[in-house]
Computed example of a mutant assay.
Amino acid sequence: MNDFKDKTVLITGGSRGIGKATALAFAEQGARVGINFKSNRKAAEETLAELSGKGHELFQFDISKKDAQRQLIDDVVSKFDQLDVSVNNAGISIEHDVVDDNLDHWISAFENTFQTNVFAAANLSFLAAQHMIKHRGGRIVSISSRGAFRGEPTKPAYGASKAALNAMSQSLAKKLAPHHIYVGVVAPGFTETDMATKTLTPIERENLLRESPFKRMAQPQEVAHAILFLASQKAAYASGSIIDVNGASYLRS
Rank of each mutant, 00 (worst) to 15 (best):
S108L: 04
A163M: 09
D74H: 01
V118T: 05
Q170M: 13
A128G: 14
I92F: 08
I133C: 08
S171N: 11
S171M: 11
L124I: 07
A173N: 12
I92K: 12
A167G: 10
S78Q: 05
F110E: 04
G138A: 14
N89C: 09
L103H: 03
M168E: 05
I203D: 15
E95A: 04
D75C: 04
P156F: 02
P156A: 03
I133G: 12
P178V: 11
V141E: 03
P188E: 01
D194V: 10
A128W: 14
D194K: 09
K134Q: 13
A196R: 01
K174M: 14
K162A: 05
A122H: 15
K79I: 04
R136N: 14
S171E: 05
A177Y: 14
H131M: 06
Q115G: 10
D104M: 00
L165A: 06
D75G: 04
E111G: 02
V183K: 13
V87Q: 11
P188C: 02
I181V: 04
D84K: 07
Y182C: 07
L200R: 07
W106F: 10
H131T: 01
T154I: 14
S86D: 08
S86K: 10
S93P: 03
K162F: 00
A109M: 00
A177P: 10
F110G: 00
I73L: 08
I181D: 02
Y158V: 13
A122N: 12
Y158H: 10
A160R: 02
A164P: 01
E192I: 09
N89Y: 08
T191E: 08
S171P: 07
H131S: 05
A90N: 13
N166P: 08
I107K: 02
G91K: 03
V183P: 14
D97K: 09
K175S: 13
V183M: 14
R150A: 10
E95M: 01
G137K: 05
N112L: 15
V185G: 01
V186M: 07
P202L: 12
F149A: 13
M195G: 08
G137F: 07
V76R: 04
H135Y: 09
V98F: 02
T197W: 00
F110I: 03
S144Y: 01
H105M: 12
F149T: 03
Y182V: 00
A163D: 09
A109F: 00
F110W: 03
F114S: 13
E204K: 13
V141H: 05
W106C: 02
D74T: 02
G147A: 10
F119H: 09
K174E: 13
K155Y: 04
T197S: 07
I94Q: 03
G184F: 01
A121Q: 14
V98T: 00
L124V: 04
A167K: 05
G184C: 07
D84T: 12
K134P: 04
D101P: 06
A109Q: 03
S142N: 14
H179V: 02
D104C: 03
G189W: 15
D84N: 15
E206R: 15
L165C: 05
Q130V: 09
E95P: 01
D100F: 15
Q115S: 15
H135W: 04
V85N: 14
I203Y: 12
P202Q: 11
G138C: 12
P156T: 00
S78A: 05
V76D: 10
L172H: 03
A173M: 13
I107C: 01
F80G: 03
Q82V: 05
H180C: 10
A90T: 11
L172I: 05
L72Y: 09
T193K: 12
I203S: 12
